[in-house]
Amino acid sequence: MSLLRTFSRRCLCLAACLAALAPLARAGAYDDFFTAVQRDDAETIIALLRRGFDPNTLDPKGQPGLILALQNGSDKAFIALMASTQTKAELRNSKDESPLMLAAIKGNLEAVKLLIARDADVNKPGWTPLHYAASAGSPRHSEIIALLLEHHAFIDATSPNGTTPLMMAAHYGSEQALQLLLNEGADPTLRNQLGLTAADFALRVGRKESAEKIAAAIRKRQPNRGKW
């Protein structure tokens, strides 16, 4: 009985020690995970996930690892996270941005394809991936716009303040993106909550050529309108 009691006491002590060390282990894994994402260290990420670390953990600012990888251009980290079936492709940050939105604004076409393949929401409420793709100006962004539209992105999606992707393209995007949206049927007559049209967005930043393209699209729809 004495031996049994001694063994039991030792087991209890060991359990208590392990319980005390567990929070430290979790804290170490937490720091290691986000450091690995920043450093594009796929091997460490894979090792942590194999040990049971949750890939959907948020950093102190409410950012999931997938979004941080996209923000930092950590492509290997992004691939490592996407390889896990536990990773949520639609997990949003504290600003309600999705990984697909970040991939779209970064012009990361391959990431956009991978996220869409994992059922990322092309038409999330509020600001959408199409808004984000339309707000930048590289040829890759036009490819992403075309891909999102191919996957049934709503071309006239309105943000919380009524802004459409066409308005974003008129103010921030490229002429190519603007023309693509017009060609695909974006409505140039819509107004946001301030009463501004896509043409107004263009004129506010001195983009007269963009405003003319929008005016031409309006004239096609309504022959007596669209003259500035």
Rank of each mutant, 00 (worst) to 15 (best):
N224E: 13
A216L: 15
E175H: 10
S8Y: 14
I218Y: 06
D96N: 13
A134E: 03
F7G: 02
L149N: 13
G226W: 06
A202R: 01
M101V: 07
L91M: 13
R92Y: 14
Q179S: 14
P160E: 00
R50F: 09
S142Y: 01
R204P: 00
T163S: 03
L148I: 02
D54W: 06
A20G: 02
A136W: 01
G206H: 07
P160N: 00
L102H: 00
T87W: 12
C11Q: 11
E143M: 13
D156H: 01
V112R: 10
E175N: 11
A211E: 09
L194A: 11
E143R: 14
F7P: 01
G65F: 00
M168R: 10
M167P: 03
L21R: 07
S98H: 04
K76L: 00
K88W: 11
D32C: 08
D119T: 03
E209I: 08
T158Q: 14
G195T: 06
L178M: 04
T164W: 09
L182S: 09
R221W: 04
A120M: 08
A103I: 04
Q63Y: 15
L102W: 12
E110Q: 10
P223I: 10
R204H: 10
A157L: 03
A136G: 08
S74V: 05
K88P: 01
P125D: 13
L180N: 09
I46M: 15
P55G: 14
T57A: 15
D32K: 14
I67N: 12
A134G: 02
T35Y: 03
I155A: 01
V122Y: 08
S138F: 06
P160M: 08
A133H: 04
R9N: 12
H152T: 05
